[in-house]
Design a protein around this nucleic acid. Structure first.
Lengths: 214, 214, 214, 214
DNA sequence: TATGAATGAGGATTCATTCAT
DNA sequence: GATGAATGAATCCTCATTCAT
């Protein structure tokens, strides 16, 4: 009689399937992964998966959507930062942390690949990407207004450049198994800083700071 | 009856198959592309393909190898440049030109994705990647020695950073269909220049101490 | 080098698959029959079937189309008959002969059932049915003009009635395994004759009054 | 806690499931209909169905049995008719009324199709069919004895012919969506009358000559 | 009884690869 | 070499049925 609506159970299992799928996709790729493998990884039967996701494609779609939500919340946090430049550094740190997990990078690559062939997934990915760039653009615009970013680029370009850096970082992780995010952290931070304010006016005045970066 | 095996014919057709496969992979991805589609695109029969390639996998392997050869020749050309800094710009231009073709970028993404799941393809891609970074490292080392690159990074880091920029550029093309390489050329060139020598010419006026080298 | 276009081989095998499918459908029904069973019956591998038919549904569609062609040729033969009434008897004999094969009747039942749920198959079946009734209508119209059919029905009604008799005959065969077409031939012929001209020629000659009465 | 098992409730729901199943089977056919669809149509949960029916097959079996009961009661009613010939007309009217519902005709077709492949269902259907023919045979025998049916057929044949007409009528409804039972009522009544006694009672009164000619 | 999540066998279809011609 | 029919393993997904709650 008492039918406790197990919303929690349902979404917990749904999430478990998502995690299993992410692990599988990171490992073998989307197409080569079979639904049976996902089920096995998630510890459920082959048919049960389809109570939670209409199709295999719906799984990757859900992954992309969830990544979008996460990105959104990360960006939302940034807007609260008083010092926007500082905020950008914070965000970059977050990205570096994510990139540290090779699975995450592999998954990102896999998602990008799938997006380039499946229009529906492509639309979701582009939506997320647009969201990210918009968020970065807002941040950049604030920094530019405060003259925290060296002239030569408008806010959109800054956002685009940072997005490319992030993509490049993830690509490095995915391609080169010897690549260490922590080891190369400095390289990427420098790339970002110099892109935004190559030893900006204040720094260049004080000259001696020139080497401090290495 | 006497069929002199024309080596030219053979390799011409082999190349035609490779081109057909590249077009297909760029369009649909490696796994979703069927060998029949490749044959159709190449204008041969389904069975004939296997006279030229042992398997489907051998096709993508050949593509990666060929890309490696091309990269090698491009890098070889750079070594002949007297002004290494100029050479780097030239190489970057080459990359920008390649990235302009969306098919090329999609193919690169597809190859990277396949590399992350198939160890054999992965090894080939990593080999190419290592070659690229080695070439860039040599260039960077020369530029550093000539003090054409601002301190803060060693040659390996410079090479890595440039590689990441290239990856990021390709990722932008593959992800965002509205992205225009030509329109954003400036952004990427600036990213490169500032990465190598922040504040470039103008800086050198105010603070020659910092980058007096260039 | 010599590539004889084996059109014959192709259509021969296609026909063999069709025959195998007809046997299976008659035995187990359309949905319960697996494509593997059809392949097994036809002596081919599971994948090969799909070189000849796009899908399982395409098989039953082809069966219906082929039945339509056969019906068309049978009806065409009738038009050549000088005595249309005699022609109708001939056609009815043909139908009785077909109904004698229980497999044929079962298949007809199965086709009808599938037609009632799949619109595409339904359209094909209705097309065949319309063709049959048109042919019968023409025959009936000729017979009516010659006063070979007793008044009370127009040509369309006659055609419809005969079609219903045929359906009923097939249904009897499919439903009752003890039913014998040959044993009950007389019953159906009588049903037809009385439907068309109760008391036949002699009546119409002696008592034309009989007609108007009903 | 004390749940008096209300027999009424139970059989009411059982009947509701049966009605839901009949609607589904008429619409989509037996095999293509899922138990979930039946449950949805009946407004119960997927598992609950199996408290009322052991299996999906048991549902169609119950439908056939129920149809048999109905047929039995209809035939029982006929036996009470003083004028058997009149009774037959009444029964035919009943059939025409049932055939007017396309769903009923589709269901009948579906049941027949399933009977031709599943021996158990086949047995039930044959049982019903035998019952029907027996009932008709009794009626026919009475009519023959009273000379209400024109010679040329024995009671069994009459019953068989009528059964075939009924099958044919249902087939027409199921096959041709433009077929109207009411519109063609006359055709079928005429078919029946002429089959039994061409120029019927009125003729026999006015022109007894007509009958003897056969 | 009622629920609906879980099960897992089964089915249509695809596709890389082989091979007879 | 060239052809394309043949193979059959593999895959996504469905669905009747069970069972814990």
């Amino acid at each position: 009689m008492a039918r406790p609506i197990k919303v929690e159970d349902h979404s917990a299992r749904r999430q478990a399937i998502l995690e299993a799928a992410k692990a599988c996709f990171a490992r073998k790729g989307f197409h080569p992964t079979t639904t049976a493998e996902i089920c096995s990884e998630a510890g459920i039967s082959t048919g049960n998966l389809f109570h939670y996701f209409r199709s295999k494609k719906a799984i990757i779609a859900a992954i992309v959507e969830q990544q979008g939500e996460e990105a959104k919340s990360h960006l939302a946090g940034l807007a609260d930062e008083p010092d926007l430049y500082e905020a950008l550094h914070g965000f970059f740190d977050l990205v570096l942390a994510m990139a540290s997990e090779r699975d995450f990078a592999n998954l990102a690559l896999e998602v990008a690949a799938e997006a380039s062939r499946d229009p529906d997934i492509g639309a979701l990915v582009r939506h997320n990407d647009a969201l990210l760039r918009e968020g970065l653009t807002v941040l950049a615009a604030g920094a530019i207004k405060r003259r925290q970013i060296m002239p030569g680029l408008d806010a959109t370009q800054v956002a685009l450049g940072i997005a490319a850096m992030i993509d490049g970082l993830f690509a490095r992780v995915a391609i080169d198994p010897e690549f260490s995010v922590q080891g190369q952290r400095n390289t990427f931070v420098l790339m970002l800083e110099r892109f935004l304010q190559p030893k900006a006016s204040d720094v260049s005045i004080e000259a001696p700071l020139c080497d401090e970066a290495h």
